[in-house]
C-alpha cells in the first residue's frame, strides 16, 4: 500500500505545467542577457565573454542621448503623476462620500482601459495641432503624455494605502489641536509615504517601458531607449540591443524589488 496521504489541492499535471511555464518565461530573458556578454557581433553565435557591447552602447552618443532622455522623462513624469495622484487619492478617500466620487475614480483609471494605440493616435493628432500652432517641439509633449498615463499607476497603490489606514488617526490629530494642514503634515503624510514611494516607482517603471505612445508623440531626434531599440530591430541586430535591454531590465528589477520591500514593510 502506498504510504502517502491524499493531497487535496494536487491536480494532475499542474505542477509540471507550472514549472515549465516559469522556465519558458525566463529562458528567453536569460538568453537575451547571456548574449549581451557575447564577444562576437553576430547575435546567436557565441564567441566568448566580453563587455564589448556595453562599452559600445555607452560610447554611442545616440544611445546615451536616448538613455538620458528616457530617464529625464521617467523622472519628470513620475514626479508629476505621483504628486497629482497623491492629491487625487487624498481627495477621493478618507472623507464622507461625495457626488461625483465614482466618476473621478473612473476618469483617473481611464488610461488603463483605452488601448495604447488609440491614445497614441489621439495624441499624435492633438499634439500635432499644438506643435504647428505654437512651434514648440520640445520634450514637454512626451513628459505630458507620460505623466497622464502614469497617473493611474501611481494612484492605485496610494489609494490602497490610504484605505488601509485607520480613519480615526486624523480624527485623533484634530482632537489633539492639529489644524487640518498639521494633521496632514504630521500624521497622514508620514503614514502615506510608503504608498507614495510605491506609486512613484511604478510610475517610473511604466514611463521607462513605454514604446507605443512615445513612438507616436516624439518629434525627430527625441528617441527614448525603447523607441531607439524598436528602430534598431529593422536593421541587422548586434548584441548592443541585448546590452541596452539588460541594463533596462536590471533597472526595472531593482525598482520592483524596492517596491516589494517597501510594501512588505507595512504589514
Amino acid at each position: 500500500m502506498a504510504d502517502r496521504s491524499f493531497e487535496v489541492s494536487r491536480l494532475p499535471g499542474f505542477a509540471f505545467t507550472a514549472v515549465t511555464v516559469f522556465l519558458a518565461l525566463y529562458l528567453p530573458i536569460f538568453t537575451l542577457v547571456f548574449f549581451s556578454f557575447n564577444a562576437g557581433s553576430v547575435l546567436s553565435v557565441w564567441q566568448g565573454w566580453s563587455l564589448r557591447w556595453y562599452v559600445e552602447a555607452w560610447q554611442n552618443d545616440v544611445v546615451k542621448g536616448a538613455a538620458m532622455r528616457s530617464l529625464l522623462i521617467a523622472a519628470s513624469a513620475s514626479a508629476i503623476a505621483t504628486t497629482l495622484a497623491t492629491m487625487a487619492a487624498i481627495g477621493t478617500t478618507r472623507r464622507r462620500r461625495f457626488r461625483g466620487q465614482t466618476a473621478i475614480y473612473a476618469f483617473i483609471n481611464q488610461p488603463l482601459m483605452v488601448p495604447e494605440i488609440v491614445t497614441a493616435v489621439a495624441l499624435l493628432i492633438f499634439f500635432g495641432v499644438i506643435k504647428s500652432w505654437t512651434g514648440y517641439q520640445g520634450l514637454g509633449y512626451l513628459i505630458l503624455a507620460h505623466s497622464a498615463f502614469c497617473v493611474p499607476f501611481a494612484y492605485l497603490p496610494i489609494r490602497a494605502r490610504l484605505e488601509g489606514m485607520d480613519l480615526s488617526l486624523e480624527t485623533a490629530a484634530a482632537d489633539l489641536y492639529a489644524s487640518p494642514w498639521q494633521a496632514f503634515r504630521h500624521v497622514t503624510l508620514p503614514l502615506l509615504a510608503p504608498g507614495i514611494a510605491a506609486g512613484a516607482m511604478l510610475a517610473f517603471v511604466i514611463s521607462l517601458d513605454d514604446v507605443v505612445i512615445t513612438e507616436f508623440v516624439k518629434s525627430a531626434g527625441q528617441d527614448t531607449l525603447p523607441t531607439y531599440m524598436l528602430g534598431q530591430l529593422r536593421r541587422t541586430l548586434t548584441p548592443e540591443v541585448n546590452a541596452i535591454s539588460t541594463a533596462l531590465l536590471v533597472l526595472t528589477v531593482l525598482l520592483l524589488t524596492a517596491f516589494f520591500l517597501v510594501n512588505r514593510k507595512k504589514d
Binding site: I80, M87, L123, A148, V151
Partner: peptide, 14 residues
C-alpha cells in the same frame, strides 16, 4: 484635490 489630475488626464489622455 482631484482637479489637477483630472485636467492632466483630460489634456493628455481622454
Amino acid at each position: 484635490l482631484s482637479a489637477p489630475a483630472l485636467v492632466l488626464l483630460f489634456i493628455a489622455a481622454s
